[in-house]
Write a protein that binds this DNA or RNA. Structure first.
Length: 479
DNA sequence: CGTCCGTAGA
């Protein structure tokens, strides 16, 4: 017997009163919409509320065209209901993901005519879409023209656009914009603007450039804050500069005189990634001695370190310890520990922990949980188990994402069976229908598999899907 | 959705 399952998850075990699950109108309505062949609004007694509409849009996330139809029907035919700004933002996000630029701009105009936006958040969503689909210039232009859509440009929205560019690794572009606009706002750029740029350089592992930013801000009289230093610290570890990271940490304690839970968590995680379990543990102990209370994230970092470099049993001990101290583990805590258990080949214990997480831990499995478990099942040729999880995802609140499809399709090759090739093909067609853009080598693999197993007919269908997805066809597969 | 810590990263 292992200790994990001989103890209650929580010290206080309230008597569980069996309750019927509450009816979920969002689930019912989304299922209705998905099953109707033509766009229709259900006749429902449930009143439309922004919250309900938002939940439905989220459930229909992977069925973008249907989601947008629903949004438009409600917008056009219900005189008594007006969409909320948050529903508009969701619809705009969906349209942008499907590259429906005309729809995006008509939704922006509609928001304006209803005098409910667009807000800076709306612009952030559209800009983020542009940036992550390889169009950073369009993101910048959107920012430069946002006043034409009735949205005021200020320092906050400037910082947002910088951050969006940095997070999509367009740091050079962000830095360029930063240099041009640094003096253009009533208040000058501030510590946040500098922090965003500094973080950008760290994200692409260019710590010397990050240090230059730090120097520049001091020269310009912008005082770095703890976030600045924590960002720099993380940058060293991310770039694999463990020694510099450690020295920077010592400097922070000595010269800045203040470190916080984020600082310590960064170092614990940094040492973990570098494989330095002992030093990670030492830092964890040190923070407690210094009177800095570890957070759930700190524990998650330590558990991950132990599972990866030490043994999963040590991770379990820390998990139990945190329960004893009264921490509420979150889904990340469970995910790192479940990964540890699966990694150690303890599939049964991992599955049991997921069940407990959902039943007693108050956490829902998310796409990271599902994707990770499917990866391990497929690694062991447990194709049915992985497909079972995929089914469960589709029917629940956690939607398959691009990663899910990549994991599953790659996994269809482990058994080298002809029927698995067909499943891979179906998944590929499905992901294209849902607006994901599979990478070309995925198409090639599936096409190869189908041709080798004599499925020429299905291979043709895949090629049609490939041309629809906007991906260029591979010459050797022209049939 | 104005910046920093936890789910792998290439």
């Amino acid at each position: 017997m292992n200790r994990l399952f001989t103890k209650p998850l929580y010290t206080s075990t309230a008597a569980s009163i069996p309750k019927p699950p509450p009816p979920d109108p969002a689930a019912a309505i989304s299922n209705f919409i998905l099953s109707s062949p033509t766009p229709t609004l259900p006749s429902t007694t449930t009143p439309w509320t922004p919250h309900l509409v938002d939940s439905i849009l989220k459930r229909l996330w992977n069925h973008g065209p249907k989601a947008l139809h629903f949004f438009h029907l409600l917008d056009n035919h219900h005189r008594s209901y007006t969409h909320s700004p948050s529903s508009f933002n969701l619809a705009i996000d969906i349209a942008a993901r499907l590259h429906l630029h005309t729809t995006v701009f008509s939704l922006l105009r509609r928001m304006r005519s209803l005098r409910i936006g667009p807000s800076p958040k709306t612009f952030a969503i559209v800009a983020e879409r542009f940036a992550s689909s390889g169009k950073p210039d369009k993101a910048v232009n959107l920012f430069l023209n946002m006043h034409e859509h009735g949205c005021h440009q200020d320092l906050a929205s400037f910082n947002t656009i910088l951050d969006i560019l940095c997070k999509s690794k367009r740091v050079e572009k962000a830095y360029e914009l930063f240099r041009v606009f640094k003096n253009r706002f009533g208040a000058d750029v501030d510590v946040v603007s500098y922090n965003v740029i500094l973080n950008g350089w760290c994200l692409i592992k260019r710590t010397p450039k990050a240090l230059e930013v730090l120097k520049e801000m001091v020269e310009r009289g912008v005082k770095p804050n703890l976030t600045t230093y924590n960002t720099m610290l993380k940058g060293f570890f991310r770039a694999g500069q463990v020694r510099q990271g450690w020295e920077f940490f010592l400097e922070m304690k000595k010269r800045v005189g203040v470190v916080d839970v984020v600082t310590y968590t960064t170092v614990v995680h940094g040492f973990g990634v570098a494989g330095e379990v002992k030093r990670a543990r030492n830092v964890f102990d040190e923070m407690i001695r210094e009177g800095v209370l570890p957070s759930v994230a700190t524990h998650n970092a330590l558990i991950q370190v132990l599972c990866k470099e030490g043994s999963v049993e040590e991770g379990v001990l820390v998990f139990e310890e945190m329960l004893r101290k009264g921490y509420e583990p979150n889904v990340t805590t469970y995910n790192v520990l479940v990964r540890g258990l699966f990694h150690a080949g303890e599939f049964g214990r991992g599955e049991e922990l997921v069940r407990r997480m959902e039943k007693e831990g108050g956490c829902e499995a998310n796409f990271q949980t599902y994707n990770m478990m499917m990866r391990y099942y497929l690694e062991c040729c447990e194709v049915e188990k992985a497909l079972g999880l995929f089914e469960k995802m589709g029917s629940g609140g956690c939607l398959p994402n691009l990663d899910t499809y990549n994991v599953l399709i790659s996994g269809m090759f482990v058994r080298k069976r002809s029927e698995d090739m067909v499943v891979a093909g179906k998944l590929l067609v499905e992901m294209v229908e849902r607006g994901f853009v599979p990478r070309k080598f995925i198409f090639n693999r599936v096409l190869n598999g189908l041709l080798l197993t004599g499925n020429q007919g299905f291979a043709k269908e895949i090629l049609r899907a490939q041309s629809k997805s906007g991906s260029r066809l591979t010459k050797k597969f022209r049939l």
